[in-house]
């Protein structure tokens, strides 16, 4: 699979751009967090496309962003569980 470039993204409609980024991000995220990959990818797709492109080029920044998203997701899920149990 050829790397995703800014010009490839720019040629696609906005909704398609997120799809293209998601398709690249998902397998990388799935390798780290198989059970949360879909939700983490969904969260990361809220980030700017240009920043997502940089993350695809830099595994380190991608990994730290994934860990950040996992932390946010866990807090969110915990608050939801405690909300439901009341």
């Amino acid at each position: 699979q050829e790397p995703l470039t800014a010009s490839m993204l720019a040629a696609a409609p906005p909704q398609e751009q997120k799809q293209m980024l998601g398709e690249r991000l998902y397998p990388l995220i799935h390798a780290m967090h198989p059970s949360l990959a879909g939700k983490i990818t969904g969260m990361l797709l809220e980030i700017d496309n240009s920043e997502l492109l940089l993350m695809l080029e830099s595994p380190e920044s991608l990994h730290s962003k994934i860990e950040e998203a996992v932390a946010v997701l866990q807090v969110h899920q915990m608050s939801e569980v405690s909300h439901k149990s009341n």
Binding site: G38, K39, T41
Partner: peptide, 26 residues
């Protein structure tokens, strides 16, 4: 209403058209 946030975050599925982020203004 922002109180109902149960479906967040939208889940990405490979091969399925992404529609998690509607109407974002540039």
């Amino acid at each position: 209403s922002k109180s109902s946030n149960a479906s967040w975050p939208p889940e990405f599925q490979p091969g399925v058209p992404w529609k998690g982020i509607p109407n974002i203004d540039p």
